[in-house]
């Protein structure tokens, strides 16, 4: 691997195998990183999601929301040659780093729930996940074999 693409909050990025790059989302706390890829055609994309749902569905085009970002990512993947039936997903993040008083403030949990629902609606199976807990994570997605490396400060590194 010769270079990384760092996907910041509210961004998404797509890489195909020929490019020989890895997709990375650093410092995922309550944010969720969703990696969707087509194993056959070797093309995949990563979205870094901050919030579960956009407030007014249609007019907001901001990729920080799960619904908008996933829609955008999947459309882009299909436009770039992925087949809808081949797509699978891996999700990382959605932790709660410190105590909050109120359930509506459990943003990590709400993010995971929302991402899982949206993927289910779109009939994209979730092949692996490392979510929840009380620590931050960094994820690196490898397009060549679809593996995702999860690094955190409290727990040993993990491959999903």
């Amino acid at each position: 691997m010769n270079s990384d693409i760092n996907v910041g909050i509210g961004e998404d990025s797509i890489v195909s195998n020929g490019e020989n790059k890895l997709l990375k989302a650093t410092g995922l706390g309550s944010c969720v990183g969703v990696f969707i890829y087509d194993k056959e055609r070797k093309i995949g994309g990563l979205a870094h999601i901050l919030l579960p749902r956009s407030p007014n569905h249609k007019d907001k085009k901001s990729l920080k929301y799960a619904d908008v970002a996933l829609n955008d990512l999947i459309n882009d993947l299909i436009n770039k040659g992925a087949r809808k039936d081949n797509l699978v997903a891996k999700i990382v993040g959605g932790a709660q780093l410190y105590f909050v008083e109120n359930d509506t403030l459990k943003i990590g949990e709400r993010n995971i729930e929302s991402v899982e629902n949206i993927l289910k609606e779109m009939q994209i199976p979730i092949l692996g996940k490392d979510v929840g807990g009380n620590y931050g994570r960094t994820m690196e997605a490898y397009i060549s074999d679809g593996r995702v490396r999860v690094i955190s400060f409290k727990v040993k590194e993990k491959w999903i």
Partner: peptide, 10 residues
């Protein structure tokens, strides 16, 4: 005590 970016998320 954690990754700076992760703490920022919330």
């Amino acid at each position: 005590e954690d990754m700076s970016g992760a703490l920022l998320d919330y």
